[in-house]
Amino acid sequence: MPIPRFWREIKQRYKGIGSRCENCGKIYFPPRKICPECRRESFQKMEEYELEGKGEVVTYTKINEPHPEFEMLSPYIMAIVETEEGARLTGHLVDADIEDVEPGMKVEATMRKLGEESRDGLIYYGYKFWPLDR
């Protein structure tokens, strides 16, 4: 991913900064400029909102055939996580045994390396999840 394209989203990837619709109160991650529920009523009413980083697994998979960038982590677990604020996101589930993973499992965000441009290139960091009771 080109440097500016990653850099632009650093706040979201490091800190889980999403947005909250001041019209209906719904919280979105990644942030949106328009609330899909309120549409025009939400225009210019979307405020930054920091997610706590806690949530639970909605569904998951263990990847055996990863993208080459993730080869060193293979096999690894990907999950869709619903945060306590109701936003949903996709992330890597680390330090977990696939046998223990199930829908509803409590998880927490932690920062890890997401990848790198190349061996001499930029390193990308961002959120992953680990079991709350590791």
Binding site: M1, R5, F6, E9, P30, V58, T59, Y60, T61, I63, E65, P66, H67, F70, L73, Y76, M78, A79, I80, L89, T90, G91, H92, P103, L114, G115, Y124, G126, K128
Partner: peptide
Amino acid sequence: DQEWETVFGATFDSLYAMMARYHMD
């Protein structure tokens, strides 16, 4: 979504795999 799915390690296969897992559950 390149910025919110694949950059985190999701492959095309894995996104459908999660639909499958969800459907099974």
